[in-house]
């Protein structure tokens, strides 16, 4: 299934279940939904997550080193959760807030 929403919209939507998610879960999900394969898209989608966090819409709550290479071996994995500001922005972009 190809996604119809801009990627950052879809990310906020995925986080609006108010559960924390690991970055690799979100990146893999988006890659699959939007049919964007390859390392280049993986990194550029992860960068969208970094921008959302730096803009204060997501906050990092846990990190661990990727020892097993689930995502990128030796790099940090981050677990993010949506912030109140992120919820406001999510509802601004007309996502149905669950």
């Amino acid at each position: 299934m190809a996604g119809n929403l801009p990627i950052k919209f879809r990310m906020l939507e995925l986080f609006s279940d108010e559960q924390p998610h690991w970055n690799y879960e979100i990146v893999q999900k988006i890659q699959k939904e939007y049919n964007l394969t390859g390392d280049f898209y993986r990194d550029s989608i992860n960068f969208d997550l970094i921008e959302l966090a730096s803009g204060g819409m997501l906050k990092g709550i846990e990190s661990k080193v990727d020892d097993e290479g689930i995502y990128k071996k030796g790099f940090l994995l981050h677990k993010y959760a949506i912030t109140d500001f992120g919820k406001v922005r999510a509802s601004n972009v007309c996502l149905v807030y669950v």
Binding site: N4, L5, P6, V93
Partner: peptide, 18 residues
Amino acid sequence: VLGKFGEMKRTLKQFKPC
């Protein structure tokens, strides 16, 4: 080059919020 035309179309469609 960056393969972002798809994202451009999606963003353009979201005129009001984005």
